[in-house]
């Protein structure tokens, strides 16, 4: 009882990376709290799924296996989890900030009357004092996220309601197998007892999954553009540099909003988190919602006309100048030096 639960998403038999990342985070939080780590997976044809999950340090895995439960729809997954949580009373519940997690999480929080914090970039355990009501709380989950356009970092707590719920984006936490031989227990959920007859009013009538065309998450070199790139034409120069040095093009939210490129290239809190060996930030001011997604880059080059841009605080090289002028020079001198 009062353990940590991680909701594991499954697509074509594979547990999503973000769920595995949360299992690793959940394991370390469970160690801090000296409680157990539990996981729940809901879908169809789940035989053997525990082999993908338990090695991350899961003590109890709940499996709801029924052909009506895949592909995901909101209501049946909600019904199962609400009932299970009412029985098991977890203190913390984590899920991916994915299409599924962001559809399911708020529905759960409303049904359970519990707080949910979206898109956390850090989760730690700590104490809390409610000065107004003179109450002290031990071992709460600090849900830390940038807010308000990234100008502030807020630490959110749920003092009184359980479970304390949070979503986290893919790539923000690290995934790590604890032990291939970890011993965990598997509990099969009697699905029929958990569902209501109205749970299937929404039906998926067509579904085609397309692999994301662009994959900046695993790129070794990312050339990222912000609003300061100035135009779509200038943004094309980033693609040229990416072609020449073998990288991918990323973008800040402002550049995506301005229509310079598409959302799938967006780096940051509401985009992708990246850890390339080289990150070239072009015309990006460096608001925290962007830097939260690139601060672990091994090396950062910042190109900006503003010599006081916050991005420069993350940079190994600061080039004060216009992107449209600097990028062609970089291409030229790269070519000169590799001939």
């Amino acid at each position: 009882m009062n353990n940590i639960f991680v909701y594991c998403e499954i697509e074509e038999g594979q547990i999503a990376d973000v769920s595995l990342e949360l299992l690793t985070k959940g394991r370390s939080l469970a160690d801090d709290l000296k409680c157990k780590l539990e996981a729940i997976v809901i879908g169809a044809n789940l035989k053997g799924v525990e082999k993908q999950i338990i090695p991350y340090g899961v003590d109890i895995l709940w499996v709801a296996d029924d052909k009506r439960l895949y592909p995901y729809t909101t209501l049946p997954h909600t019904s199962i989890i609400v009932k299970l949580f009412e029985e098991e009373k977890p203190q913390i519940a984590l899920m991916g900030a994915t299409s599924i997690g962001r559809d399911l999480g708020p529905r759960l929080s409303s049904a359970l009357h519990s707080g949910l914090t979206a898109d956390c970039t850090s989760l730690i355990i700590g104490d809390h004092e409610d000065k107004k009501n003179k109450k002290e709380y031990k071992d709460l989950l600090y849900q830390i996220r940038p807010a308000f356009g990234g100008n502030i970092v807020a630490t959110i707590v749920n003092p009184d309601c359980r479970p304390q719920m949070a979503t986290v984006r893919e790539g923000v936490m690290k995934k790590e197998i604890l032990s291939e031989t970890y011993k965990g227990k598997v509990n099969q959920i009697e699905v029929a007892k958990y569902l209501n007859s109205e749970d299937f009013v929404v039906k998926v009538i067509d579904r085609h999954m397309e692999a994301s065309k662009v994959n900046i998450k695993n790129a070794g070199i990312i050339i990222s553009g912000g609003y300061g790139v100035g135009s779509k034409e200038n943004f094309d120069k980033l693609y040229e540099l990416a072609d020449v040095i073998g990288g991918e093009v990323g973008a800040s939210r402002a550049a995506v909003d301005a229509g310079y490129t598409s959302h799938e290239r967006q780096v940051g809190q509401t985009g992708v988190t990246v850890r390339p060996k080289l990150y070239i930030a072009c015309g990006i001011s460096g608001q925290i919602q962007h830097t939260a997604g690139m601060e672990e880059s091994a090396m950062v080059i910042a190109i900006n006309t503003d010599k006081n841009a916050p991005i420069n605080n993350f940079a190994d090289y600061i080039i004060t100048g216009d992107v449209a002028d600097v990028i062609p020079k970089m291409i030229k001198h790269y070519k000169l030096n590799t001939k």
């Binding site: 502030i152 970092v153 807020a154 630490t155 959110i156 309601c161 830097t291 940079a315």
Partner: peptide, 19 residues
Amino acid sequence: PTKVKSIENVVFQAKEAKV
């Protein structure tokens, strides 16, 4: 249910950089 425990202005860590 959610309470804001604290809010910090964004503080950037200083790092030696080549200009």
